[in-house]
Design a protein around this nucleic acid. Structure first.
Lengths: 66, 66
DNA sequence: TCTGAATGTAATTTATATATTACATTTTAT
DNA sequence: ATAAAATGTAATATATAAATTACATTCAGA
């Protein structure tokens, strides 16, 4: 479950803590998502995208098989 | 939680049943997602995208506020 | 028509995303 | 160097995605 969240988050200058607050989850959830150890829900993915100004494809898309 | 799954599924000529089998969930789960009454996980979203040959943005993106 | 396939949906159960608390490690600035 | 901030991660609890079973409704073809 790899993704580009960490880079995008840093681009908009947010700590995990700040992003977590913005999207309404805990810091741990953000940390685990960045580490690829979580399978977040669509709603959370969307809220994260809004917070870092990216689309789903830009942050969460992974090609089949990879 | 609106999305474009129903249209995309029909474009590739799959019934809910067939799509469900392809992505490894039950027909009910597909039905509820199409109806916008579910908040699927990212992994399932991705598998659905692979099955209907679309990207996350094409099927599941919704603009902030809408 | 009518018959079966496709779909909508409800109740209950099970699996897992997320919260909470807590502590350790790593970074960063002083 | 050191202290604080940021991050990684574990254990347990809670909320909810998804399964299961079941039945009703819609729709296309014979």
């Amino acid at each position: 479950m790899k993704n580009n969240l960490k880079v995008a988050r840093i681009q908009v200058n947010l700590t995990q803590q700040q992003l977590a607050k913005k999207v309404g989850v805990t810091r741990q959830t953000i940390s685990l998502i960045e580490k690829g150890k979580y399978n977040p829900t669509l709603k959370l993915c969307l809220e994260i995208c809004y917070a870092v100004n990216k689309t789903l494809d830009e942050i969460f898309w992974v090609d089949k098989g990879e």
